[in-house]
Design a protein around this nucleic acid. Sequence first.
DNA 1: AACGCAAACAACCGCACCAGG
DNA 2: ACCTGGTGCGGTTGTTTGCGT
Length: 244
Amino acid sequence: MARYPRVDKISNGKKTVNKGAWSAEEDRKLVAYIMRYGIWNGTHMAEPAGLARTGKSCRLRWMNYLRPNIKHVNITKEEEEIIINLHQVLGKRWATIASRLPGRTDNEIKNYWNTHLKKRCAQEKLEMPIACDVKVNSNPNNNLTHQNPSIAILHPTEATNLGSPRDIPVGLNRWHSRCNMMGEDANLWEQLHSLKDFSAIEDLESMCPNSGSLLPSSECMYSDGVYFRDSQDDFTIDLWGNWS
DNA sequence: AACGCAAACAACCGCACCAGG
DNA sequence: ACCTGGTGCGGTTGTTTGCGT
């Protein structure tokens, strides 16, 4: 969507920088410069490229629009599904989501989410019953497994319920210590990533296109502990990793 | 035809992180 | 250990377009 360029004076009055929409001429200059010299220094590329822009603006324009392999076509249904599924698992980590969609940028996905998908998903979520997000794959007869349970995400569309560290039924002793170390607001996904026995990461690729439930029979409740049920047994663990 | 409003989206802004000095 | 500059990321803004009245 076109925007008219505008020119802002920098505070000392000596230099002016263009803001707003990029003209075709500016695009041409930027592309020509990058093709010739590469992006060796994003901050200082504007001046040698002959552009009255900030380096940051140049970088953004390049990354979001001019870069080769950027798709300038509408997001497909398949891509939309992937975005929805990944958003439910990753949250607003647009750059990570974009990395799984070749030719799409974080900015594009963010905009698409905010304008097309946010309302729709909010509505669908209201209609969806609260269900279990994670499953402890443990054998109650195996003490080692008890101490170090591994987890698998059941269904991507439900993973957003993993809102707080209190919701995580995994290796709770370790979890507890990690929370102390990283702070309560530490990002869930990074923490899950950091758990060596978190087994769901590798499944992400396969489960995103077809968000099927892996283990539909299990359940859990969140309070000061977590209750699990699988095909073989019921058990609970509290926030300090005590099993019963 | 004119107006108002919402949607769409490019671009900007501020903050956090990281690497090098 | 601290400082500084560069980069990346997510949130927000500003402008155009499209549609309904």
